[in-house]
Write a protein that binds this DNA or RNA. Structure first.
Length: 928
RNA sequence: GCGAGGGUUGCCAAGCCAGGUCAAAGGCGCUGGCUUGAGGGGCCAGUCUCGAAGGGGUUCGUGAGUUCAAAUCUCACCCCUCGCACCA
């Protein structure tokens, strides 16, 4: 008996043997192609990555053993900006970054010194990823590895974008972005110190004429211009007169700065104190001449810093006006209603303010009331007939258009919350970018294609379907080009780089041909070449058909992919994007077939985060526990789509379990016991069920469920088998069969251990290609399983009794129920309608003669049947179990268990009062 | 705030869609016993609570409801996770 193994030696040995074992070429076998979202190699792998890649590996190994030709490839995503930032921080010896890379990730100093070049970083970590993935035992075809800036891959991107452009899916547009004037760059939410939730809002500037100038008031509700009674200006703020595109505007200084970034030429001129404007008049063609009034709530940082007042419909305006009027000022101004809203009076703002008991314009409740009125009026409001009589929703669009076209209005973008601060400390503003290219995901026709595609796909788990469908509806145009970062240049506009998410949408197809592409010079990979390889169109001139034809054949062999795996955070972008691109670029027969979405990883209950240092490095985990332990823990503690929690103490117990498995297989495989009797039949029968359920679980990607069956379940069966057999005898042939099947069932999960055992048992060939066990229905013996179940249940009963009894038992009697009770059992258990059963039974002459005894039995048996597991109950109906025979055969066993003599007899042979309690499959037990 | 998913007995986690089979699988931890090579070994049992007989009582985020019957169905509320865009 080889008790322990040196896992590390063992793993190293097979790692070498496996180096090229999983290279997969087209063959006569049915293919199975699965892939995972590739990593961005900017740091070390942690155990969370470990699970992301182990789950598909288990699936790959499973199908391989089931005889499919399996492709499991891997590449690296290196496009984008993060590594550029990292290299800069390394160059300026940023403390936190150096700590992260040198101390946490363990990058050697000389390597770290070269990290000032971003390409060095990604190449280094791509190498590290491969090394660690190999040590984790991933069955990847490494010949196909590529990174997203390989020149051949860039050619592939160029081909895609030319097509998307030609199809009208890539369009040019204007795009407001968060922008830091200090950095002179757009900033993403992750670049922000403050205000990362701020959204860009589009305001319409309503231009009020004020002498030779304009006062632009910013609003989200331009249709309310008909209800304007006055303007608001903050008397304590100093405004400026600025020349904007040749016209004089009176706005806040902040607003002037904003306008500069939004396609306006702005020259700031004289200052104008707010209080100087108070009491003067302004006018607009749609509202007439109105006065300018003072209000403290007017914020110079908000939009233009000028506000038009609609007291009938805007609570702030109503309150500010009321405050003034209570002091006896401007009492001639009346709110002016512009729409009707069901459930509200003429002036909804007034109703709401009064209902909420708002005191003045500083009341914090005003915010929510404003929101409430705004939503209600937008959803259900109807303009008065004199203002067109349309719904607010429609009127707003009309009036916006009209104002922009005829009344000199402009658009001003601003944030909904403030402040928004860049990491550099500078104030972030909205800037309009031009010439930005977009993927037109908002196109309804394109969306419809993706909905259609989703309908044809298998989504695991099924709950994600709703989220995918929502995402498709919700998606807007996606800015798909960048000015900075690593990546492929947009072929027709070389000032732009294809954005990182946008260059990784159909790369799964590239894996199928990547190893061929590597051998071809990039400059020969013209669009025509890809047209031929991917679409079968044309005759490329740069390369001979003898070269291209096998490449296309390989693509067609593997593609489309069967399943794509990824964590759930990619649903709202990548996983959905790739469906758009597949539909746009590839024919119907090459569309994706399924996706599996993972949960996230926790480390001892806390979120795993590299930047916070709360990570457990995968390499350390493999070093400490062994690759198999890591794999089994990561896939056995939760199903792939559930979040999992890495806890060292739990991992350690998994390691012990594997060691137990190792010893148990050795012991049972070497067993020489003679062909066993009923017990071997039982074990063999159990095994068939385990095999069937393990297989089923893996077909459904349920790694945890599969392990429950093929690890813990098998172990429990084997334990019972050994316990029943007793110490002395040697395990029989069923145990040897189990050992062989067991190794293969676990091979996808713990391949190193299983490969070693497979070899130790003298089996031919690598276990990765061994035949997956199949359940043999001939060997399933429900009667044998029922008999053991009966025994086990009775054993439990005896145990619970002996525990309660304060005395040491000297003898156990098992009193089996008489035949007539079994007849009742069969009648009741077999009857769908339990109520009439009693009457039926009592019709029988023999039953009636027993009187109360049979009536009691009916009651007891009904209650017993109610408690039996359904499978067990049905089994007992279909198969006769000779109760007495079972207990007599197990007499020695029971005696051994309890160290007392055991007698088995029929209940009607005993005069003991307990004897009357005997029920079918629940014998009376007398312990004395 | 919006969209999606989730809250089960010390912990992890089945069960919930198809209501009774559920005091509720399995693993971990802990407790006790056995193993007459004790130390990260194996086996057996217990682990909500009461019980001198295999049984009873109270539980499945909170509160209501439907039903003969609810962890499972309905409604409301509380809490957690993921996503909310140019970022991998």
């Amino acid at each position: 008996m080889a008790d322990t193994v040196d896992l590390h030696t063992l793993e190293e040995k097979y790692r070498d043997r496996w180096s090229a074992e999983f290279e997969a070429d087209p063959s006569g076998k049915e293919k199975y192609y699965l892939n995972v979202a590739f990593p961005y190699p900017s740091g070390a792998m942690h155990v969370g990555h470990g699970r992301t890649y182990t789950v598909p590996d288990i699936v790959a190994r499973f199908w391989r053993m089931r005889g499919k030709q399996v492709l499991f490839p891997m590449g690296f995503h290196v496009t984008g900006t993060p590594v550029i930032g990292i290299s800069k921080r390394i160059a300026r010896k940023d403390e936190k970054t150096v700590w992260l890379y040198r101390d946490l990730y363990g990058v050697p100093q000389d390597v770290l010194d070269s990290f000032t070049d971003p390409m060095v970083i990604v190449r280094y970590f791509a190498g590290e990823y491969e090394r660690i993935m190999r040590s984790l035992g991933l069955s990847i075809d490494w010949r196909r590895r590529f990174i997203t800036v390989d020149p051949q891959y860039s050619k592939f991107i160029e081909w895609q974008y030319r097509h998307l452009h030609a199809l009208g899916h890539v369009v040019k547009g204007v795009h407001p972005v968060k922008f830091c004037p200090q950095c002179d760059n757009p900033v993403g939410d992750h670049d922000l110190l403050e205000g990362d939730k701020a959204e860009i809002i589009r305001f319409v500037l309503v231009m009020f004429r004020f002498g030779d100038s304009f006062i632009p008031t910013a609003t989200l509700r331009p249709e309310t211009v008909y209800g304007v009674t006055n303007l608001w200006v903050n008397p304590n703020v100093t405004y400026v007169k600025a020349m904007v595109d040749g016209n004089a505007w009176i706005i806040s200084r902040e607003a002037a700065e904003k306008l500069k970034l939004q396609d306006h030429t702005v020259t700031i001129g004289d200052e104008i104190p707010g209080r100087d404007l108070v009491g003067k008049k302004a006018s607009h063609p749609l509202s007439g001449e109105i006065p300018i009034l003072p209000a403290d709530f007017v914020d110079p940082e908000m939009a233009s810093g000028m506000v038009m007042s609609v007291p009938a419909h805007a609570p702030y305006d109503y309150i500010a006006l009321r405050d003034l009027q209570e002091k006896g000022m401007y009492t001639d101004i009346r709110p002016k209603s512009l729409l009707t809203l069901e459930g509200h009076g003429e002036f909804p703002a007034k109703d709401a303010v009064e209902r909420a008991g708002i005191r003045d314009q500083k009341d914090p409740k005003l915010e929510s009331i404003t929101q409430e009125i705004y939503s209600a009026e937008f959803a259900r409001g109807k303009m008065h007939d004199r203002y067109g009589g349309r719904s607010v929703r429609e009127a707003r669009d009309d009036i916006t258009e009209k104002m922009l076209a005829e009344f000199g209005s402009a658009v001003l973008y601003d944030f909904d919350t403030r402040p928004v601060v860049c990491r550099c400390g500078g104030r972030v503003m909205v800037r309009i970018l031009h010439d930005q290219w977009f993927l037109a995901y908002s196109d309804p026709a394109w969306k419809a294609e993706v909905h259609d595609q989703l309908g044809k796909m298998v989504l695991v788990p099924p709950e994600t379907r709703a989220e995918f469908e929502r995402t498709v509806d919700w998606l807007k145009d996606w800015a798909c080009t960048r000015r900075v970062g690593l990546g492929t240049k947009l072929p027709w506009d070389r000032n732009w780089i294809v954005e990182p998410l946008s260059d990784s949408t159909i790369y799964m197809a590239y894996y199928t041909i990547a190893h061929h592409m590597k051998k071809l010079p990039a400059e020969k990979l013209t669009p025509e070449v890809f047209d031929y390889i991917l679409l079968g169109k044309g005759t490329p001139s740069t390369l001979p058909m003898e070269v291209l034809e096998p490449i296309r054949r390989e693509l067609l062999y593997w593609y489309p992919y069967d399943f794509r795996f990824s964590a759930k955070d990619l649903i709202s972008n990548h996983l959905t994007f790739q469906l758009f691109h597949h539909r746009a670029l590839l024919p119907p027969e090459l569309q994706p077939k399924g996706m599996v979405v993972f949960g996230m990883g926790l480390l001892s209950g806390a979120k795993m985060s590299s930047s916070k240092g709360n990570v457990f490095l995968l390499e350390d985990a493999i070093e400490e526990f062994g690759a198999d332990t890591v794999r089994m823990f990561l896939t056995g503690s939760a199903e792939p789509w559930q979040d999992f929690d890495w806890r060292n103490e739990l991992v350690l117990s998994v390691k012990k379990q594997i060691e137990r498995f190792w010893a148990a297989v050795q012991e049972n495989a070497a067993a020489k016991g003679a062909s066993g009797g009923a017990l071997d039949t039982w074990l063999e029968s159990r095994l068939q069920g385990r095999v069937a359920r393990t297989t089923r679980a893996l077909e459904l990607f349920q790694t945890r469920q599969a392990l429950q069956e093929c690890f813990y379940g098998m172990e429990a069966d084997l334990r019972w088998y050994r316990r029943r057999m007793g110490e002395k005898s040697d395990p029989g042939p069923a145990a040897r069969a189990l050992a062989s099947a067991w190794i293969r069932l676990l091979a996808p999960f713990i391949p190193y251990t299983c490969e070693a055992l497979w070899e130790a048992l003298g089996e031919e060939g690598p276990i990765a290609f061994a035949r997956w066990p199949e359940a043999d229905p001939e060997k399933i013996r429900p009667d044998a399983e029922l008999a053991e179940e009966l025994l086990a249940r009775t054993l439990e009963d005896i145990e619970s009794i002996t525990k309660i009894l304060p005395v040491n038992p000297k003898e156990i009697q098992i009193l089996v129920a008489p035949e007539w009770k079994r007849a009742i059992f069969v009648t009741i258990a077999g009857s769908p309608e339990k109520r009439d059963v009693v009457r039926e039974i009592m019709k029988d002459e023999g039953m009636r003669r027993r009187g109360k005894e049979s009536a009691d039995a009916v009651k007891q048996i009904t209650s017993l049947i109610h408690r039996l597991p359904p499978g067990y109950r049905e089994g007992l109906l279909s198969y006769q179990v000779d109760e007495k025979g079972v207990f007599v055969a197990a007499q020695d066993f029971i005696g051994r268990e309890f160290h007392v003599a055991v007698r088995v007899l029929s209940a009607d042979e005993s005069s003991h009062p307990k004897a009357r309690l005997a029920l079918p499959y629940k014998p009376a037990i007398v312990i004395e």
